[in-house]
Simulated scan of single mutants.
Amino acid sequence: MASKRPFQSLFSTAACPLRPAQSSRQTLVRTSACPFSTSTVPSSTQEYEAEEPSKPRWQQTPPRMMAPFRVRPLPRGPVFKVNEDPRKLDDAYNRMLGQGGDKMLTEEVKWLAVTHKSFDHGRRGFNDRLAFLGKRIVSLQTSQALLSSPQPDQWPRDDQNRPLPDKFGRVPFMHSALSGLPGLTNDAEARVLDKTRLAGLAERYGFNHVTRWKPKRTDDLQSSGQDSVLTTSLYAVIGALALERGGEIANKVVQQRILAPLGFNFDDSASSTL
């Protein structure tokens, strides 16, 4: 029978190098726990938490989001200055929403609705989420307006207002409830809500002077995407009204202040003045 002594000696010699490793691991745990001990020195996070903001969020960059120095060089070209005057912003809201329109939203939301994500690297908040909601509301009201309005492309009819047959002798089914069906296509809605038309409407209300953004080229705002930025601000105002004033007010604003200037007619009884 083979002796067990060689195996015992093997295990004893193999276990020897492991013993100091275990003891060193315990010492590392003890030393690593030392820096986490309580200390009377205040940390930097406590200093930031103790600071009370002297200005609102829309007026200054949060201190904890500011870098100690600038990494990129300053862009070439003239400096693009954004609006900081609350009176000019209130004037734009009064033009769009009517008298007292500057009182329909809170001060923070009024600035947030006209702040693009390119401004100050988005550190003061931006209007993407408000614009997403506002675009859905404007799209719904546009579809309803197209559905109830006469369409330019209608099936040819004879003198007695009966549909004429096509070259194969077929006569389509015609009904008054289906007259606005061609207006539900994506092309019809895209023609109405073209960003060039909406940007011109935003300029009429004065949002081109109060929207806060950073163009790629300060000497050429059009190629930097000004139409898209102004359209986003217009949608964001509708989204902010829906959240703070309700969907009924937002729908009336879309009908009277956006779709009506674009050529749609609405019943006065269905939508009263703001």
Rank of each mutant, 00 (worst) to 15 (best):
V237I: 12
D268G: 10
E108P: 06
P68V: 14
F126V: 08
K135N: 13
L181R: 10
S143L: 13
Y93P: 00
G169E: 02
Q151T: 11
P261D: 15
G134N: 02
Q46R: 14
P63Q: 10
C34K: 13
L133R: 11
S3W: 08
L130E: 01
L97M: 12
A250Y: 02
I238F: 00
P17L: 03
Q160I: 07
L198D: 03
I249F: 11
R30C: 06
D219P: 04
A131G: 03
P56E: 09
L243E: 14
K216I: 05
K55E: 15
A242H: 05
A199K: 01
A33S: 15
D85V: 03
Q99P: 07
P78M: 06
R212K: 06
V71N: 08
Q8A: 06
V79G: 01
A242Q: 03
P215H: 02
H209M: 05
R25C: 15
R136G: 11
S118L: 01
Q222S: 15
Q141W: 10
P56H: 10
R191S: 11
R129Y: 05
F119A: 09
P261Q: 05
T40G: 12
N265C: 08
T196K: 12
A177F: 10
L259Q: 01
L243K: 13
D268C: 12
A190T: 13
R245E: 11
P150G: 12
M66P: 05
S32A: 15
L181E: 14
A21C: 07
